Amino acid sequence: MKRTWILLLAVAGAALAEGPALFYSKSFPGSTPAYVQITLAKDGNVEYREAPDEDNPVKFQLTAAETEEVFGLVEKAGSFKRPLEAPVKVAFMGAKTFRYENGAEKNEVKFNYTQDSSGQALADWFERMAESAQRRIDLERAAKYDKLGVVKSLLLLETSLDRKRLVAPEQYLPMLDRIAKNETYMHTAQARAADIAAAIRNPKP
């Protein structure tokens, strides 16, 4: 009996630790990638996938303030208990899904385009998370398989950074430092990697 109670408490504790979570997906056949899926836990842990069954997601961490802002937008959007689709005809912009889960509570809404300000801001947050993961995938792939393409990948990363489209920029530092110190890469790539790393470590006010 005692062992059963311990097991139940452990399960309850694990469920409590998990807490609220958000799910976002966007399916847009013909685009690259054609599908993205992002989960965000209340502790700020993000997982990015380009297939529902992908078993090796890109992982990174939002700050506490960023996480609170995203979950705050969910509350403003009614925790997805009301429709977000705008009552206007627009071109197809990708089939999007928001889902909020918290224990037994599970709310989901699907839309193509929304005029809801909180829904728009929330979609932009997830688009930034997706862009951040895609830049990391691109850089890691180039660094491993296409050293001549590293400069282009770094330029894309720098552009996203300058446009403030990246979240959790510290995730790039290990790769940037390796490129900057590895003489098998072009000097241009080494210098650009060092500059981007410096910009991340010392962001402009």
Results as ranks from 00 to 15, higher is better:
residue 85 E to H: 03
residue 108 E to C: 01
residue 58 V to C: 06
residue 41 A to W: 01
residue 177 D to R: 15
residue 153 S to W: 01
residue 124 D to K: 10
residue 32 T to K: 15
residue 66 E to M: 10
residue 112 N to K: 09
residue 33 P to M: 09
residue 113 Y to E: 09
residue 153 S to K: 05
residue 190 Q to Y: 04
residue 110 K to P: 00
residue 23 F to K: 11
residue 51 A to K: 07
residue 177 D to N: 15
residue 84 L to E: 10
residue 67 T to W: 09
residue 178 R to D: 13
residue 42 K to I: 11
residue 151 V to P: 00
residue 173 L to H: 09
residue 128 R to G: 07
residue 119 G to E: 05
residue 100 Y to F: 15
residue 185 Y to M: 05
residue 108 E to K: 09
residue 21 A to N: 04
residue 40 L to D: 05
residue 87 P to C: 02
residue 81 K to P: 00
residue 167 V to Q: 11
residue 55 D to H: 04
residue 73 L to D: 14
residue 153 S to Y: 02
residue 176 L to M: 10
residue 50 E to S: 05
residue 201 R to W: 00
residue 53 D to W: 08
residue 89 K to N: 07
residue 51 A to V: 00
residue 191 A to I: 07
residue 141 R to C: 00
residue 10 A to H: 06
residue 116 D to I: 09
residue 198 A to E: 14
residue 115 Q to T: 10
residue 76 K to A: 13
residue 202 N to A: 14
residue 162 D to Q: 14
residue 147 K to H: 07
residue 151 V to C: 00
residue 68 E to R: 14
residue 46 V to T: 02
residue 152 K to V: 12
residue 176 L to F: 09
residue 70 V to S: 03
residue 36 V to K: 03
residue 144 K to L: 12
residue 86 A to G: 06
residue 91 A to M: 06
residue 44 G to P: 14
residue 141 R to F: 04
residue 118 S to I: 06
residue 116 D to V: 07
residue 189 A to N: 02
residue 41 A to D: 15
residue 9 L to V: 02
residue 170 E to M: 09
residue 199 A to E: 04
residue 107 N to L: 04
residue 119 G to N: 09
residue 74 V to K: 08
residue 116 D to S: 10
residue 65 A to R: 07
residue 6 I to D: 07
residue 86 A to F: 06
residue 141 R to A: 07
residue 59 K to Y: 05
residue 73 L to K: 09
residue 27 S to E: 13
residue 194 A to N: 06
residue 75 E to V: 12
residue 92 F to Y: 15
residue 149 G to P: 04
residue 73 L to T: 10
residue 179 I to F: 12
residue 13 G to T: 13
residue 17 A to T: 10
residue 161 L to D: 02
residue 99 R to W: 05
